[in-house]
């Protein structure tokens, strides 16, 4: 079963990431029964059908605007943000906005090209669930990768995980 880093620990997770191919109309889609993240278009087409299903989340691609999801956040327990490439840094801003602007308390999951050397930044921006790139790491490497969450112990600037900058948190000698 695929692994997920949740609150700093490895857990099994079976949620499907539903990807729409171009020929599929979101309205005509039959929805999987198990835990699933659906793209924005599918969410919008089936919103009412999803009501009451806590195992359905929405995934946003890096060019999607989190603002468009804002009205629905109350009904969602999880949002996944896709990294099409690990060098595409838009999801960091998206996660930070979900947490700090929209007060989203549910799960924010990193999906896609998710590599251990970015875990620390993800965690700082409000991701509490990290799904490492499929097939990239062995189980032993995944265990090792948890160390990356702790790369730096006292960062300078405020972020979601640490809303006060160092100059407000610490008494620094002159």
């Amino acid at each position: 079963m695929p692994k997920l880093i949740k609150n700093g620990r490895l857990v099994d997770d079976s949620a499907e990431i539903l990807v729409l191919d171009e020929s599929q109309a979101p309205e005509a889609l039959s929805l999987p029964a198990g835990p699933v993240f659906v793209p924005m278009a599918v969410w919008q087409a089936h919103k009412s059908a999803f009501s009451g299903r806590s195992d359905v989340g929405v995934w946003l691609d890096s060019h999607d605007n989190v603002e468009d999801l804002a009205p629905d956040l109350e009904d969602l327990s999880a949002v996944a943000l896709n990294f099409p490439k690990f060098t595409d840094g838009r999801a960091y801003s998206a996660a930070a906005l979900l947490r700090s602007r929209y007060g989203f308390k549910g799960e924010i999951r990193a999906i896609g090209d998710v590599l251990r050397d970015q875990f620390f930044f993800m965690q700082r921006c409000g991701f509490d669930a990290i799904q490492p790139k499929t097939g990239k790491y062995s189980d032993a490497q995944l265990e090792e990768s948890l160390a990356s969450l702790k790369d730096f112990s006292a960062p300078y600037q405020a972020a979601v995980d640490q809303p006060e900058p160092l100059f407000r948190r610490a008494q620094r000698a002159t």
Binding site: G89, Y92, A96, Q118, F120, F121, Q157
Partner: peptide, 8 residues
């Protein structure tokens, strides 16, 4: 330095 949102 290591601003998490602006590293990429």
């Amino acid at each position: 330095t290591f601003h998490p949102e602006f590293a990429f």
